[in-house]
């Protein structure tokens, strides 16, 4: 009674562009036998309320993620580079918006 189920249907990550001009955003995952099917299924699962105008699917195994342990060395060094932000610079008010 217990047969192997989805064992061979790989997992896909789904990215949906909600409207023209915006980026694709991760919205979840699903199982599908191949990419074409994953696209179809993503449409049926993740865009039932007109959430999208374009879909990407990516095999979950193809994603390489950064290691949380490296968070310190990867991201903290950016913290003190405040001169990268426009608010770092004071401009006389009469110059107006810049």
């Amino acid at each position: 009674m217990n047969t192997p189920a989805l064992k061979d249907w790989p997992l896909w990550e789904v990215f949906v562009r909600s409207k023209q001009g915006l980026e694709h955003k991760h919205c979840g995952s699903l199982h599908a036998a191949d990419a074409a099917q994953a696209l179809h299924m993503a449409r049926d699962v993740y865009t039932r309320r007109q959430e999208g105008v374009s879909i990407w699917v990516v095999p979950s195994v193809a994603i390489t993620a950064s290691n949380p342990d490296d968070k310190g060395e990867l991201f903290d060094p950016a913290a003190d580079k405040i001169y990268r932000h426009p608010t770092f610079y004071e401009i006389p008010e009469e110059v107006g918006h810049m």
């Binding site: 989805l6 249907w9 699903l30 199982h31 179809h40 299924m41 049926d44 699962v45 039932r48």
Partner: peptide, 11 residues
């Protein structure tokens, strides 16, 4: 036959 397909057929 699979949840994903349930969704499709309902559509």
């Amino acid at each position: 036959p699979i949840l994903e397909e349930d969704m499709a057929l309902a559509n």
